[in-house]
Design a protein around this nucleic acid. Structure first.
Length: 555
RNA sequence: GCGCUCGUAGCUCAACGGAUAGAGCAUUUGACUACGGAUCAAAAGGUUGGGGGUUCGAAUCCCUCCGAGCGCGCCA
């Protein structure tokens, strides 16, 4: 029995109590009841606080209401016992047979187990990383590469139509500084003080010269542009290549220049104009974002006629909405948190609902330690740890998993030496090892000729061992974990869940022999456990996939 | 000065407003003639920064103080 199924049964019982007058609920019976898997085993297979929630409304002490519910619930099929505990918790024990069928359901659902349709019909745009094409992807972007991608995956699993989008900041003075830096190095001159100083710039200069014969002979003004554009093309291609190798792929790479060249900015401002929150002052065009809680109004067009960066952002948002996205999610670093208020206000100024159509997720920065000292992550300073270097140090899976298992609003400190030297201590190996072990059992079963033919009889009540029950409950939890991760935009919940499930499996494995030994007969218990193993493998594989981490058959 | 985020075991971090605040690492002690020991079993480690409040119940919500990070431009 899954938590959802138990919730349905409790709602049914509540309705029954209301109908026969045993219970008065002025607010009506809730559509769902929160059922949780208690940490403490003594609190049953499942627990619910529904009596505590409804006690006041029903005008009766929670414990009395709990008692009333317990009496009716005990009679429900599949429920072995119900106890009232503490202030009014209901602790439910499920019959072994009702628990075991979950394994068969999971195996049948296969790769779709965990998915739902809770967000069906919703078009979501997830924009993340959005770097200048002036340098390599580095650790500062890496967290968003993982978390943004994982958010997109869990949203898709919840039924949403998801687009991953990368906004290329290819316009503005940073590009010129970048071009000038590449050019200077190609000419053997020092890089400007406010230019780009990383080693990669020198490599870039060599490559640009090699790939563009005659570039050094161009007139000065043309030469700068040529270096800028050639460097841009190489850097962008490099970013894509690194991200591809990191298993993070974007559906749309959107150029800020294109936004301007296609007249989108002008159009965006016209749309805003129609909403009546723009005004002119001091020769500039402003958006009255203070109408919606921003702490000051924002300039869109400067008095010299140029668009601000905020104008681009506004137009880009309007453009996304016109492409049909219901929800636009932005992942920004903590250094951009000051931007949240104005983005929300901007959406409101565009006539949208800032609580639904736009979401800005702020993440704390990743700090990286090396030799007991912090390595500053600055492209400008040139002391960067690139994505490529990180992948070489710890591998795609370990890096992705490590960054995915923490909520992004928690600051993160990684020790390079520790990860490099002791990578086997990373929890990713714990989970992947569980998968490899599961795969190994299934291989061995196949070698023994034990198969799980479709429709073959299997007795769910065979799975009555304590460890089997715990594993089954963990597996039944998966769809809810995925739905929660999608709703809260917190994919780390999937990683934590996988660790929990892997632990339940390892404990099961330690206590319950799955396959027959020697010339032992294959029994119903063997087959039931093998089905449980197959179900566990499915869940672990599906979960790892949501994080973009591989599920190895062997390690 | 104003604003946002954060403060949990020695370290890195968890915990839909739920029951005795949990993992990993590090420390200590056990278990391999069995399907993969990258595992399992156990010990130890805490006034959740301090103080108030809300309620059946607070690490979580509100107020306040302390501490840390970041942001406050007709820059991008």
């Amino acid at each position: 029995m899954t938590p959802e199924q138990l919730s349905e049964r409790i709602v049914h019982v509540l309705n029954g109590l209301v109908e026969d007058g045993s219970l008065a609920l002025p607010g009506g019976v809730p559509a769902t009841v929160v059922v949780e898997r208690p940490k403490n085993r003594e609190h049953g297979d499942y627990a619910t606080n529904i009596a505590l929630q409804l006690g006041k409304k029903a005008g009766m002490p929670p414990r009395d209401l709990a008692g009333l519910l317990a009496e009716r619930l005990t009679a429900v099929e599949g429920i072995a016992s119900v106890d009232v505990a503490g202030p009014g918790f209901l602790n439910v024990r499920v019959a072994a047979g009702a628990q075991g069928v979950v394994a068969a359901e999971i195996v049948e659902a296969g790769s779709s187990y965990g998915s739902s349709d809770t967000l069906a019909g919703t078009k979501v745009n997830v924009e993340f990383i959005s770097a200048n094409p002036t340098g390599p992807i580095h650790l500062g972007h890496t967290r968003w590469a993982v978390v943004g991608d994982a958010i997109a995956r869990v949203l898709a699993a919840a039924g949403a139509e998801v687009t991953r989008e990368f906004y290329i900041n290819d316009r503005g003075s940073q590009m010129d500084k970048f071009g000038a830096s590449v050019e200077a190095l190609a000419l053997g001159k020092p890089v400007p003080e406010d230019g780009y100083h990383g080693d990669y710039v020198a490599e870039l200069a060599e490559r640009v010269v090699a790939e563009n014969p005659g570039i050094l002979d161009l007139p000065e003004d043309e030469r700068l542009v040529a270096f800028r554009e050639a460097g841009y093309a190489i850097q962008l291609a490099d970013q894509r290549e690194q991200l591809d190798a990191f298993n993070t792929c974007f559906d749309v790479w959107y150029s800020e220049r294109r936004l301007h060249d296609e007249g989108r900015v002008k159009h965006g401002l016209e749309v805003l104009q129609g909403q009546g929150h723009l005004f002119e002052a001091d020769g500039a065009l402003w958006m009255r974002t203070t109408d919606f809680g921003d702490d000051k109004d924002r300039v869109l067009v400067r008095s010299n006629g140029e668009y601000t960066y905020f104008a681009s952002d506004t137009a880009y948002y309007v453009e996304k909405r016109e492409r049909g996205f219901d929800v636009c999610i932005y992942l920004l670093g903590a250094d951009h948190h000051g931007y949240v208020g104005r983005l929300k206000a901007m959406a409101a100024c565009a006539g949208d609902d800032p609580d639904r159509n736009i979401e800005v997720l702020i993440g704390q920065l990743v700090k990286i330690m090396r030799g007991g000292e912090e390595v500053r992550l600055s492209k400008r300073a040139g002391t960067i740890v690139t994505l490529q270097e990180l992948v070489e140090m710890i591998g795609v899976d370990a890096l992705r998993y490590t960054l995915a298992r923490y909520p992004s609003d928690s600051p993160l400190t990684l020790d390079v030496e520790q990860i490099t030297r002791q990578s086997s201590e990373n929890p990713v190996f714990y989970v992947q090892y569980a998968h490899a072990r599961l795969a190994s059992i299934l291989r061995n079963a196949a070698d023994l000729g034990i198969t799980l033919a479709e429709g073959e009889e299997f007795d769910p009540s065979m799975l009555s061992h304590e460890r089997e029950g715990e594993l089954l409950r963990a597996l039944a939890e998966f769809p809810r974990v995925v739905a929660t991760a999608a709703r809260l935009r917190e994919p780390h919940r999937v990683a934590r869940y996988l660790e929990d499930t892997a632990s339940a499996f390892h404990k099961f494995y330690d206590n319950c022999r799955v396959l027959p030994q020697g010339d032992e007969e294959t029994t119903d218990l063997h087959r039931a456990r093998l089905l449980l193993v197959a179900a566990t493998r499915t869940v672990v594989a599906n979960g790892l996939d949501l994080l973009g981490v591989s599920a190895p058959e062997r390690m």
